[in-house]
């Protein structure tokens, strides 16, 4: 249960950083924290108390493996989600660089060309 609380707290921290902070790189960090909060939650969903890693060893029967291992599916999901997060973060950093090039600043308040 405490682990779920940790994921929720991280989610809040990430959301705060992403939406409230004015510095663009702090927004990038907020996004990363937000994503890893969700990833942490997904891994926790598949956790089995005292379970073994979901890698089958030679000589282990399928039944024994399925009984003892943690759920591998969320781990596969998290791997995919990490890749997506990586792409997002890279794009965000590239956009920040462009913005710095145009405005000479990474302060979101200085970006004023767009209204509402």
């Amino acid at each position: 249960m405490t682990m779920y609380v940790l994921a929720a707290v991280l989610f809040g921290v990430g959301l705060y950083g992403l939406l409230v902070k004015r510095h663009l790189l702090k927004k990038v960090l907020g996004l990363l924290i937000l994503e890893h909060a969700v990833n942490l939650f997904l891994v926790e969903v598949g956790y089995v108390d005292g379970g073994s890693p979901p890698i089958r060893l030679a000589g282990e029967t399928a039944a024994a493996f399925a009984g003892g291992a943690v759920d591998p599916l969320p781990q596969a999901l998290v791997l995919t989600s990490i890749v997506i997060g990586l792409g997002l973060a890279m794009l965000m950093v590239a956009l920040s660089l462009r913005i710095y090039e145009r405005y000479g600043s990474l302060d979101a308040d200085r970006m004023s060309e767009l209204k509402g």
Binding site: G87, M90, V93
Partner: peptide, 8 residues
């Protein structure tokens, strides 16, 4: 730089 999304 638009390249960098490709990791996704």
């Amino acid at each position: 730089t638009a390249d960098s999304e490709k990791g996704a």
